[in-house]
Amino acid sequence: MAFCPTLFWLFFGLLLPLALASSFGFLFPLLFALGTGFPLGFLLLLFTRMGRGRALKGMRQVRSHLLRGAGAVFVALGILDTVLYWNL
């Protein structure tokens, strides 16, 4: 859908030099493409199987759990970062 600057840096700045240095480097761009395309493919499959209305309603129900989980991860990482910074 979009090619943002972050993906550009990850692909051309990090992945391709790593792929050139590795013996199995030809697989890295394939795995990158599958990993970035998987969420879109999953949503398209969900919309075609369930119908757009039911799929969006189900995602709204899951949204609160995902937001709480993401918040807990960010708080935990913030505490970990603070503890590691002050213990250096």
Rank of each mutant, 00 (worst) to 15 (best):
28 F>T: 01
11 F>K: 01
73 V>R: 12
40 L>N: 03
83 V>R: 03
12 F>E: 02
57 K>H: 06
43 L>Q: 12
54 R>W: 01
23 S>V: 03
46 L>R: 09
13 G>R: 00
18 L>C: 09
5 P>E: 03
61 Q>M: 10
83 V>L: 12
44 L>I: 09
74 F>R: 03
14 L>V: 10
79 I>G: 01
38 F>Q: 09
4 C>A: 15
56 L>P: 01
62 V>Q: 12
85 Y>D: 14
80 L>C: 08
17 P>N: 06
30 L>F: 15
88 L>V: 15
23 S>H: 03
81 D>C: 11
63 R>C: 10
49 R>A: 14
33 A>D: 09
35 G>K: 08
49 R>N: 13
48 T>P: 00
81 D>H: 11
39 P>Q: 02
16 L>W: 06
14 L>Y: 06
4 C>F: 13
56 L>R: 10
35 G>A: 14
17 P>T: 06
87 N>K: 15
79 I>L: 13
78 G>M: 02
35 G>R: 08
15 L>R: 03
61 Q>G: 12
83 V>F: 05
32 F>K: 04
49 R>V: 12
86 W>L: 15
68 R>F: 07
2 A>M: 09
53 G>K: 12
11 F>M: 00
75 V>R: 04
46 L>M: 07
28 F>V: 01
59 M>C: 13
2 A>Y: 04
82 T>A: 15
7 L>E: 06
60 R>K: 14
47 F>K: 09
3 F>D: 06
28 F>L: 15
50 M>T: 13
46 L>T: 05
75 V>Y: 01
67 L>S: 08
63 R>P: 02
48 T>M: 02
64 S>L: 08
27 L>G: 11
